[in-house]
Design a protein around this nucleic acid. Structure first.
Lengths: 144, 144
DNA sequence: GTTTAATGTACATTCATCACATACATTGAC
DNA sequence: GTCAATGTATGTGATGAATGTACATTAAAC
């Protein structure tokens, strides 16, 4: 089942959770919120729903949401305060050492390759995957 | 720790396993072998090491390798026979219904977007990620 | 200022999964 | 036919995921 959350700065619903997915619910929430944060749909100063409210909307336990919030807090995106709720923080992009940067880029390439290979093995045509890759690059060019 | 396996049709070692990774060992083996199968480094008729031999080389338990073999058997890549060992099968690319194809392409886009966003949030520059994407497209064009 | 209710935090529980250990069934080689 | 190498089946301890429940904090209401 999928549920939706409405962001303060965007009209279309985002943050859906698929209980049947093989990626954990916490990770799905983290991915969805991180995407909104990177896109700017959630901006510094914005308040997020309480873990209980979001858990209710998503159909999961509030502790599951709370854990996702804490992971995003650890990444520097959110500030969590008791009773006051969860707020988006100002978050400068982390500066990386060259070595870290190279290592991360390599990991990215490896994950990317595995991802593409997996869908290719499932029978998706090369052209469809290629154009999805192109689309991602293009989208980024336009949006920035 | 990383270990290496030598494929019959390729000089450079492949299939490394990282115990500290957050992706499971079985999945790493599946990913590595599937990559070799899709690339053609492992071709129909090729024999794979026994689960015990590969487990020894990789430094993991042979049942872990056996499980990976069985997953690839379920995908249609391998034929497992007792005593005779594991052999690469002829495997036509699965034909997909249009609906499946669209759904898979959507999943691919979603996973791709999450992947890129995650590394972007880690501080990797947009240009590095973009060029990795471009490289993947280019590599595929050349190799096929 | 006191009370109160809403929020995040902490810990226990249940269940699934991972990697491994061990015993077994099968079967090609000799 | 015997044997040893291979895959198969089942059990186990550890880890993690999602939830249940109780608690600590604190902004808001009065």
């Amino acid at each position: 089942m999928n549920y939706a959350l409405y962001m303060p700065n965007v009209q279309t619903p985002s943050l859906t959770v698929d209980v049947d997915s093989d990626v954990s619910i916490v990770q799905q929430i983290v991915n969805g919120l991180r995407g909104a944060l990177v896109r700017g749909d959630l901006a510094p100063g914005d308040s997020l729903p309480s873990s209980r409210a979001l858990g209710r909307d998503l159909g999961v336990h509030f502790n599951t949401v709370a854990q996702a919030y804490r992971m995003l807090e650890a990444e520097g995106w959110l500030a969590l305060k008791r009773r006051a709720g969860t707020v988006v923080r100002e978050r400068p992009n982390p500066a990386l050492e060259d070595a870290e940067n190279l290592a991360l880029t390599d990991s990215f390439k490896k994950e990317l390759l595995d991802l593409r290979t997996r869908y290719q093995a499932l029978g998706v045509e090369r052209e469809a995957l290629d154009s999805a890759l192109e689309d991602l690059i293009e989208t980024r060019r336009i949006s920035k």
